[in-house]
Amino acid sequence: MKIGKIEEKLLLYKIKKNDKEAFVKAYDLYIDQLYRFIYFKVGSREEAEDLCSAVFLKTWNYILENSLKDHKTLKALLYKIARNLIIDHYRKNKDKENLSLDADNGIEVIDEKQSAVKTMELKTDLLVLETKLPELKDEYREVIILRFVNELSIKEVAEILDKSKGNTRVLIFRALKALKELLENDEKINK
């Protein structure tokens, strides 16, 4: 679901005034991309769902505390809260198990209604990328998901990562280069 800039600002303004319906609308708008972002970071469907729900609840509490003044966009706030929650999640589960993106988990996530061909194509893409993405540095992976999967603008990515636009551009370039190298190496080995 796509949203215009003015519409997004209106939504944020309404949410700042504790408008619940507006917040639920924001949930509808951002849940998919936020889920994706969390999923690629934690690698498990259940954990991504739990963290997603925690993100929205925490964001609402944050708004109630009237702390939304500093944030220009709701999207950036949601991502920032998600990042913090993921860090907390890692800390808590550090001793329990080593989390990584599992190919089987990833395939399960695909919508069952999609055509078989497309599903197959996606499966291969996902298999390749999902196995390679965790090999990337956390910073690179994050930036690739935000920019190329969730299609956020450089300005938005910079805001989420608390970096300048220039730094973000450089980071994106390096991340893409690193991913390309990984995939090329993989191809060479397979040959």
């Binding site: 998919d32 889920y35 994706r36 997603c52 999609q114 996902l126 990328l129 190329f148 999967v149």
Partner: peptide
Amino acid sequence: KLNNLKNIQP
């Protein structure tokens, strides 16, 4: 291919 990852949805 990266864009295809968009299909991952809850």
